[in-house]
């Protein structure tokens, strides 16, 4: 994977993912319907909406206008500041470039747009990737901005993600901060001894960091296992039970994909006339 040249060992979580506390600082606390929906409702609604969106042919452009309004409406109902949402969506950028290339370098029939010769198929495909990708990213940003990491975990559990995967996600959420703190301390120790990684020669050194990190992570895993064993662990995490979503919540949440589906159906009828 390629990304712009950066300090190779900047503090891993805080700089890269806005906020030191993984999955907690991403949340913008508000009192909105979106915030109060149970996580399993949110995840499923988002998933279904994205499926409908991806399944819609790009020349149904009227449908995409309505989808856009639905996404925007959700963001506004959740009272999320648009600039924060926009900033977090930047992760999409590499694919935006890809989408822009498509009309310019694409094959097939060419059309003149404002005096520039572009590929018709390229315009369609580029727009499709851009629009669907953007809606997908906006939905995910909306989810993580309204739902703490451990709630997302609970949502996955209720959606019947296999228990072992739920546990792995749970440990990941719990320990990513601990390990990133360790990484930060290792970096400070290194800097205070005047070390700076540069060029290809730094590879060996980065590998040593990765090795040390693995030892710490693995040993932590073993100690955690012992601590679990000491408290009677037999392969399952307790299901905390409470917090099942009522019909009302499901109705509120599934409104989004259901509306999208209706729009798709109506556009389909209208286009085939």
């Amino acid at each position: 994977m390629i990304r712009p040249n950066e300090d190779p060992l900047k503090h891993p979580i805080s700089d890269h993912h806005h906020g030191h506390d993984f999955g907690e600082r991403l949340v913008l606390h508000r009192h909105s319907i979106v915030h109060h929906l149970e996580p399993q409702v949110k995840i499923l609604a988002m998933f279904l909406f994205i499926i409908v969106c991806v399944a819609t042919p790009i020349h149904f452009w009227q449908a995409f206008v309505v989808y856009g309004l639905l996404v925007l409406g959700t963001i506004l109902i959740a009272q999320l500041p648009l600039n924060v949402v926009a900033r977090r969506s930047l992760i999409e950028l590499p694919f935006v470039f890809f989408a822009i290339m498509m009309p310019i370098f694409g094959s097939g029939e060419r059309v003149e747009v404002l005096g520039v010769s572009l590929s018709r198929l390229g315009i369609e495909s580029g727009a499709s990737i851009l629009v669907k990708g953007t809606f997908g990213v906006l939905c995910a940003v909306c989810l993580s901005a309204t739902t703490p990491a451990r709630e997302i975990l609970r949502g996955l559990e209720r959606l019947r993600l296999p228990n072992l995967l739920v546990q792995i996600v749970s440990f990941m959420i719990r320990y990513v901060n601990v390990v990133s703190d360790e990484m930060a301390r290792m970096k400070i120790a290194r800097l205070s001894r005047g070390f700076e990684a540069q060029g290809v020669r730094s590879w060996r050194f980065l590998a040593n960091v990765a090795g040390a990190l693995f030892i710490r992570s693995y040993e932590r895993g073993e100690r955690v296992y012992l601590a679990m064993l000491s408290r009677g662990y037999s392969g399952k995490l307790p299901d905390t039970g409470h917090g099942s979503a009522g019909i009302r919540q499901w109705a509120q949440g599934l409104l989004l994909p259901v509306l999208a589906l209706l729009v798709l159906a109506m556009t389909n009828i209208w286009m085939s006339r």
């Binding site: 990491a149 451990r150 975990l153 749970s170 440990f171 959420i173 719990r174 320990y175 601990v178 932590r220 100690r223 955690v224 012992l226 601590a227 679990m228 408290r231 009677g232 662990y233 037999s234 995490l237 307790p238 905390t240």
Partner: peptide
């Protein structure tokens, strides 16, 4: 940090008696 492996304090304390 080894002992507290669950997402919240309450769940962690519940782990043992649950088992």
């Amino acid at each position: 940090d080894d002992q507290l492996f669950m997402p919240t304090v309450r769940e962690d304390v519940a782990f043992g008696p649950f088992n």
